[in-house]
Amino acid sequence: MLTKRANAVLHKWLATIVSIQLVIWLGTGLYFGLADDPKASGNQFRQKVEHKSEGLQTPTLIAPEKLSSKLTDAKRVSLVWRLDKPYYLAFFQEKPHGYQKQSVKWFDAETGALWVINENYVTELAQQSLKHTEKAKLMENATINLISRGTKDIPSERNTIWAVALNNTDNTTIYISDVSRKVIAHVDDHKRLKNLMFQLHFMDYFNTGGFNNIFSKVFALLTLMLAITGLRWLFIARLKD
């Protein structure tokens, strides 16, 4: 059992170690509670993309049996539409969350050819996802990059993504997944501020996109010890005085 003096010394030294992080946790926690800004979602210029228009003519599809040699070990084969064109999407490794590493192949459902997306598709999709009066002009000056090793804007993403960076005042970047071939996020400076707050709150200094990291584990343990020694000091030692 800790003596009153040892408890006080332990509390003091634990506070020395975790005090700054404690202020960061409280400050960022307050930010999450107070900054209920819809802009922080990054979606102020985002609109839903309809991949299959109403009344679209039924296409002549190639039978997936003809692709069977390319579909060995597939666990799911879906017929889906992207920008009004039908495709077969074959899942070889399917994880519960879209950001986890997936293994898929895409085939043109009318020709059976492997479908690899290019900058034209990415540009068209990004433009359709924009709700802006000058979206054509914004897209003219956009820069497009293929990212295969994660990005600070979407740290949890483990799949290859396309980034369409617009040259607007909020520095909006539109992210398109190479797995789902859909828009997965619009990230602007408001959203980046929120991301920074999450990064500080989770102590995610290696950009993993999660909170199960060594810093948060160690500091959470030390903070619990700080709270216990503090409560002991407050309720057992101090109040008796």
């Binding site: 997936p64 049996e65 069977s68 579909l71 666990k75 799911r76 017929l79 539409w81």
Partner: peptide, 30 residues
């Protein structure tokens, strides 16, 4: 994890199903 599919021995395929459900947003085989 889901078991693997054998698409080579399908009696019906996505195209057959699409004829019955032309307004489908997606048709998944598993």
């Amino acid at each position: 994890p889901s078991p693997t599919l054998d698409v080579s021995s399908l009696k019906f395929n996505h195209a057959d199903v699409l004829k019955s459900y032309p307004n489908a947003d997606s048709i998944s085989l598993f």
